[in-house]
Design a protein around this nucleic acid. Sequence first.
RNA 1: GUCCCUGUAGCUCAGAUGGAUAGAGCAUCAGCCUUCUAAGCUGAGGGCCGCACGUUCGAUUCGUGCCAGGGACGCCA
Length: 559
Amino acid sequence: MLPDIRAQLQTHLRDILTRHYPPLADLSAFELETPADKKHGEYASNVALKATKVLKKPPMVLAQEFAGLLMASAAPTPLAGLIVNVEPKAPGFINFYLSPKAFFGILTDIFTQKDKYGTSSVGQKAKVQIEFVSANPTGPLSVAHARQAVVGDALGNIFEAIGFDVTKEYYINDEGRQIDLLGDSVKMRAEEILSGRSMQEHFSDDHYKGGYIKEMAAQCLKEVGIRTREELQAKRVEVRKFAVDYLMNVIQKELSDFGVNFDVWSYQSKIADEKHIQKMLEYLNGCHVLEEKDGAVWFKSTQFGDDKDRVVRKSDGSYTYLMPDIVYHEDKYKRGFQKVINFWGPDHHGYINRLKAAVQALGHDPASLIVLIVQLATIYREGQPVSMSTRSGQYIQLQEVMDEVGVDAARFFFLMRHINMHLDFDLDLAKKESPENPVYYIQYAHARINSMNQKAREAGLANQETNFQLLESPEELDLIKRLGSFSEILMICYNELDPYALATYLQELAGLFHKFYDGHRVVGEDRALSSERLALVNATKIVLANGLRLLGVSRPERM
RNA sequence: GUCCCUGUAGCUCAGAUGGAUAGAGCAUCAGCCUUCUAAGCUGAGGGCCGCACGUUCGAUUCGUGCCAGGGACGCCA
């Protein structure tokens, strides 16, 4: 891999300036930025502006002095042939203009690393757990889960690409009130089938009333082998278990159809059973962070920055959700994860502090627990929002969205906004095969390149993978430069804990490609130029493919 | 009342770590296919970056306070 020009230039800048101006050694302003406007060169430095106070001279004067020094001293370094000009510019910027040759290393890198291009080892194999979706098995997945599924999956892929040891995990809440309600709902529907009488008046607002409950009830009677109401009464537990297993099968199938695969499926009933909870309560009690009040047991989370203390065992002896969750999180740390990332819906926002408090009480760094809130998505059909209400059974399911717009468009649309932004998902737009649809825009670039390769084969033209010389137009250079920032983009995703930047990057990259395509003929008369351009588009194809793969979107060869 | 998110072009949104004339898509208007995929490209118009103050040589970006929209604040999960 070629040394990074920016880093080299930065070092050069620091060395030369601090040697001639010792007071600048304390200055931390040697980063080179990329100007928004190309006419300001490839890189720009603001040292002169920053140095004006220390050296007590006007910025523009300093910029001129600095530029002269840099130009003269670049000659003996490896940067010599690459820097074309160093120019001071008002109000005190120093702009660096580079020769096209400076960028050709990017193409060579891409061909050397192929599908590994962009990956790095910054994660140093640290163990990271990403827990996401974790929807209660009380019904098929909704679009809210779908967004979490895609974002969690893509972020996990990106973490892996930059060198973390990632475990994607789904936590199944197969116990508690919601599951009891589910069991009851199925049992009542089963009773309707056996007795022929409606149980409608027994259904409360909290019971599940979706159509799938009736289907499950019918199947449950068959598979569990229940023929009478007495048997049904006797087999409550089996009915409940049947319901959970049935729905987890549905959920797993949906997720795998959606291209989301988990490494670990963990069950609350196994990790946080009565025995583990008892042990945890004893342990916490030993740490003096529990308190009994009003017949309930409270976790004194205010000691760790929460706004109020939280009940962990209710006065009726049952546990709040926090209790098994504390046990589950201790289990995560026991398994050796150095970073624990949870994706939650916005309704759980208030829950973050108490869980962090618990993690801290258990002796872990609260910063190692990262909770990401993924905002909801509103689905629009024909310009109208499709309303959602979970319990009543009227809500848009992941399955419907997949059926209607396909996996690629669905995944990409969920990634098209920052995770902390509310997302409007327009079904009609996602279905459109038009330029408005960014998925096709990117995939189209990929497919176009494939067809150029076909043409090149017919012409007996080979890919030039090194020794570039002829690429020099703005369209070619813009494309190459953008290809070179792929790994930087992955780092932005990592820092922001959001795969969003990658989705945007791929759109930009596809745009630069399409511009290049329209302006320049690849397979043409000049064979030397043709094979360099062919290499350029194939490098583009590699980066597009690498990016799409991380997002879980397919890379069609033909469209 | 407390906390979180958001406020940028007519609409949907970019502008990570402060920089030079704030960008893209859609919509509107005008163009480009005898040559590698027109699911593409080119051009035009369109802006008190919610408001005020502060920090700074420099603020859409950072801080504080307002205003507006959305959401969360249970011995639910």
